[in-house]
Nucleic acid binder design. Sequence first.
DNA 1: AACCCGTGGAA
DNA 2: TTTCCAAGGGT
Length: 324
Amino acid sequence: MSTSATAADSDASDLQKSLLSWYRHSRRNLPWRRTRDPYAIWISEIMLQQTRVAAVLDKYAQFLAQFPNVKALADASLDEVLTVWSGLGYYRRARALHQAAQMVVHHLHGKFPDTAAGWRQLPGIGRYTSAAIASIAFNEPAAVVDGNVERVLERLDGERHEGERLWERAEQLLAKRAPGDWNQAMMELGATICLPQNPQCLVCPVNGPCKTRGPLQSRPQPKRKRAELWYALYARKNSVLLVQRPADHSLMAGMWELPAIRANGVEPLHKLRHSITDTDYAVFVVRGRTAKKHGKWVTHEEAHRMAITGLTRKILRKHFAREA
DNA sequence: AACCCGTGGAA
DNA sequence: TTTCCAAGGGT
């Protein structure tokens, strides 16, 4: 068979060299880049889903310290896992992580899959995450597409790719001899240079072949919603009453919070703002008065060692700061 | 395809 | 103050 390289092959090769070289010199020093342990890589990929690096750093260290391997995670209770996850958001990730750990231990003899297809059978792991883990931890030539990669390809090619075309384009460019570094290089470029706003094109390692070198056509943004949330704060001495959300609730299942109440005209103890996905909430906390039988009385310190929601954390911090 | 799921920091 | 977003998955 012919071995002559096409122009497209040559272009891809130059692009690969430029980007890989840049990545190996300029990448951020992140903890999950110092390991090839599939378990540690897996945890990092789940935590990083739709979540900023800065928010993940602390949780990542804490999670690995408490659950150092898949057996420890599988043996832990869901509540323990949710407690560490508390504040990170998207709590279904923690549930799926726990469930996947038990599947690996009980059905796969504690041995992780070594292919993207195998990883994808596990809950909470889709096309992106399976390819990320397989390429980084097992050197499988599987391209990833995340928000960064989609944006980088849009600028590079001067057109948006959608659906399956997007994945095909990512596969075309993949450096098959270094898939883990390549995938991370594409994402690192998107996260640090090829930004949504104000891209740093002057210092971009691939500005030569880039067809855009500037702002992208903006997309219409879905309008944000507004709503109110009302909670009752029952306080005695140093304790407050928390209740647990139903385990089968679609929103923050199993997490602890203040008892929710209907809106009323009582002057709130606390007023604050909180956003959950596409809704901006005005939050009102009134003093609890009626008898309350269900729930758990906890101190501020105890609450922070429970699986409380981010909003609950925010309310309690404000409340006990005022008490002090 | 469209929608839902959290959070807090930056602009 | 408000807007925008960040290494997606599940349905």
